[in-house]
Amino acid sequence: MSEGLLTPTMEDYLETIFNLERRTKAIRVKDIAQSMGVKLPTVTSMLNTLIQKGLVNHEKYEYVELTGEGSKIAQEIDRRHGILRSFLIDILKIDAKLAEEDACKMEHAISPDTLERLLLFMEFVEVCPRAGSEWLKYFSQYCRDGRPKDDCLEHMKGFLDQYSTKLKDMEARKGVKKMADILLKELSPGKKGRIARVTGSGSIRRRILDMGIVPGAIVEMERVAPLGDPVEVKVKGYHLSLRKDEASHVYVGPL
């Protein structure tokens, strides 16, 4: 059977049955009518067409089910729907309800090639270091407020910052040996790192954790006190001081 012969309505029926099957084992004509918001006779006549095409099994007064072929086609339609919806929501930042409706219409018309490109594009936005979710956030700002007057310069600087961290990250990953975790106290002033782990026990450790020095947090060494101890670090946007002894319970890895 060639799918080209299917009309959008037929495809919608297959998709509906497919989705219903996922929820309940036994599907009645009534369920389909309810789900699609049409009358019972309409469903019955469409089911007959689909039975003829060998996509659906339905004995009178019995349950409706997709044939193997029908199931395959329905799955494909569902995939298209999913990709389109996520493109509309995640990339174009369209409202979920509208995205759902539009995806329903587009899924029947879109060519497989265009769909694959769309998928690749979404992947690209995700993996390319120059794009990413930050970048998309500005897009939704752009959609909401139009072209910003003077933010571009600030944003550009912000991006440069991000790029340089990303660059270091990539270099670190690419580098022959991964930068080993160092002690927080060994971080030199102005340098940043990511907390790898906090060792030790008791109240000191608890206090360190409570103050936001938790694994994964980004920490920047600010300075060493005039007498050489304690040190001042920046974590979670504030300044924290701790002694070198205490900082030696904290291991820091690359960003």
């Binding site: 109240s203 000191i204 206090r207 360190i208 103050m211 304690p230 001042e232 504030y238 300044h239 924290l240 001081s241 701790l242 002694r243 002894d245 205490e246």
Partner: peptide
């Protein structure tokens, strides 16, 4: 043992 010096430096 000494008590910790994990302290905030407020703005």
């Amino acid at each position: 043992p000494a008590a910790p010096f994990v302290m905030e430096l407020p703005p």
